[in-house]
């Protein structure tokens, strides 16, 4: 009797990224909250970008503004998030790449 293979869930790439590639251990606790919020806003898929304001991230993570900014900087340094727009006064656009294995 053959059973159909379970359809790959959209979190597979995230699981691989966080655990198999060890990014979870390299991300600070606050940063993982920010990252999960951005990933969720991208629909749980990599290679997409999303426009999010600091206030929106703050509201969803209940972190302070400096903490969110610092977390975003850490995520950018790790290559997990790329901010593609830098218009002052406007919400940034964050691109979530699927970074290659180190």
């Amino acid at each position: 009797m053959t059973t159909a293979a379970p359809a790959p869930v959209q979190a597979d790439w995230l699981k691989e990224l966080l655990f198999d590639r060890g990014y979870l251990a390299r991300i600070k606790g606050e940063a993982i909250k920010v990252y999960l919020v951005i990933v969720q806003a991208c629909g749980g898929r990599p290679d997409r970008s999303v426009r999010l304001s600091l206030a929106q991230i703050q509201q969803r993570t209940r972190l302070s503004c400096p903490t969110v900014i610092e977390s975003l900087q850490r995520l950018e340094r790790l290559g997990l998030v790329v901010s593609t727009t830098r218009e002052p006064g406007r919400a940034k656009t964050y691109y979530v790449p699927n970074p290659p294995a180190a």
Binding site: C42, G43, R48, S49, V50, G79, T93, P99
Partner: peptide, 19 residues
Amino acid sequence: SNPFVRARVYELAGGEPLE
């Protein structure tokens, strides 16, 4: 492989950011 290049290519390819 460069995430910055990938982001740029994504935008040029018409990948509108999600709101």
